[in-house]
């Protein structure tokens, strides 16, 4: 029996899909931990396996997949659990909010029904009590006139209100972990700010851990305790947020921060992860060396031969790069520049 003190402890998670074109490895080697009350931001380019990781944790991936490694939640490996046991954890202990609130709600049922059914699936509670608790939760996520909104259909709400309703559904059972996969990208900027504010407030109020997938460096700077940078389905750097901003070690992280000069400060939201030259590795191709080598300005010849492993560069600062020791310290930017 593996045990760890963490709420969530992912070790060497690998996810492969069997597709018509062959086996696709969407996640090669994902490892990170998350403690109660903590916020971890998962960042990386499109296709780097962030969503797949979130879905693997909750067991929501399609059946044509193989997961290996371990996903310990409270010491239990979720990958070993059956469908029935997993169902008891989903929505109750681990909740998910997706990018597209517009399509997360079932168009033919009222908001009230969709939130009540969640509570009733997990708790021995009367319909009446579930209804009252749901009204209260809608109020808590800042939906005005919650009693009326219980009877509304999704299409009768604005985008921001829908995402609030989705958050209310996710939080109705007071989960210990909330996985939010780009929960604000589909919303306009002012609404984004409100939703982020809301998530932060609810997080500290409910004491839950937050696994936050985002492209938005402004959000990262605002909310992250820990940052995990993924590239090509692997964790390439993971550390406390401050440690990442001050001394990024992996060339990919450095490139990102170089291109986003105000990474370490909150800023107008909506700014996407900067695009660095080159393209994402094809998940159906097996590489021998470092996956980042074709795009890396620091690459040496051995980089295409030896696959780097995740090493501890300093206390709790993990980096996957053959050359991290040789690279010059990252130039500290003057604050306010």
């Amino acid at each position: 029996m593996m045990t760890s003190g963490h709420l969530l402890d992912i070790q060497n998670l690998r996810v492969q899909f069997t597709t018509r074109r062959g086996v696709v490895t969407a996640v090669h080697d994902m490892s990170f931990t998350l403690d109660p009350g903590e916020t971890l931001c998962l960042i990386g380019e499109s296709g780097s396996g962030k969503s797949v990781t979130g879905l693997a944790i909750t067991g929501l991936l399609p059946k044509e997949r193989v997961c290996s490694g371990s996903v310990l939640f409270n010491g239990r490996n979720l990958l070993d659990l059956g469908d029935r046991q997993m169902r008891r954890i989903r929505g109750k202990e681990i909740a998910m909010v997706f990018q597209d609130a517009m399509s997360a709600l079932d168009p033919v049922h009222t908001i009230g029904k969709q939130i009540v059914e969640t509570l009733m699936a997990h708790e021995d509670i009367t319909y009446r009590a579930a209804w009252d608790a749901s009204v209260e939760m809608l109020g808590l996520v800042g939906i005005p006139d919650p009693k009326q909104r219980m009877l509304s259909y999704p299409h009768e709400l604005s985008g921001g209100m829908k995402q609030r309703a989705v958050i209310a559904i996710a939080l109705i059972c007071r989960p210990r972990l909330l996985i939010a996969d780009e929960p604000t990208t589909a919303l306009d900027v002012t609404i984004q700010a409100q939703i982020i504010e809301l998530l932060r407030a609810l997080q500290s109020r409910l004491g839950m851990a937050l696994l936050f997938v985002t492209h938005d460096l402004g959000v990262v700077a605002e909310i992250a305790d820990k940052v995990v940078v993924v590239y090509g389905g692997r964790v390439v750097e993971a550390a406390k947020a401050a440690s990442i901003y001050e001394s990024p070690r992996m060339p990919y992280t450095r490139a990102l921060i170089d291109l986003a000069p105000h990474f370490d400060r909150p800023r107008p939201r909506g700014e996407r992860l900067p695009a660095i030259p080159g393209s994402v590795p094809d998940p159906s191709v097996q590489l021998s060396g470092c996956a980042f080598a074709p795009r890396c300005s620091e690459a040496e010849s051995r980089c295409t031969e030896i696959a780097p492993s995740l090493e501890e560069a300093s206390a709790r600062h993990l980096v996957r790069c053959l050359r991290w020791r040789d690279l010059a310290p990252f130039p500290r930017r003057e604050l306010g520049a």
Binding site: L55, T58, L60, D83, R87, R88, I89, R90, G91, K92, A95, M96, F98, D100, S103, A104, L105, D106, P107, V108, H109, E117, T118, A121, H122, V166, I169
Partner: peptide, 26 residues
């Protein structure tokens, strides 16, 4: 295959409810 089904599963609903209440109904 629609996202609200994934979300319904993510809520921990029983299979019947996912497939019938949300699936078939739509």
């Amino acid at each position: 295959n629609r996202p609200f089904i994934t979300f319904a599963r993510g809520k921990g609903l029983p299979r019947f409810s996912v497939n019938i209440t949300h699936g078939l109904r739509n």
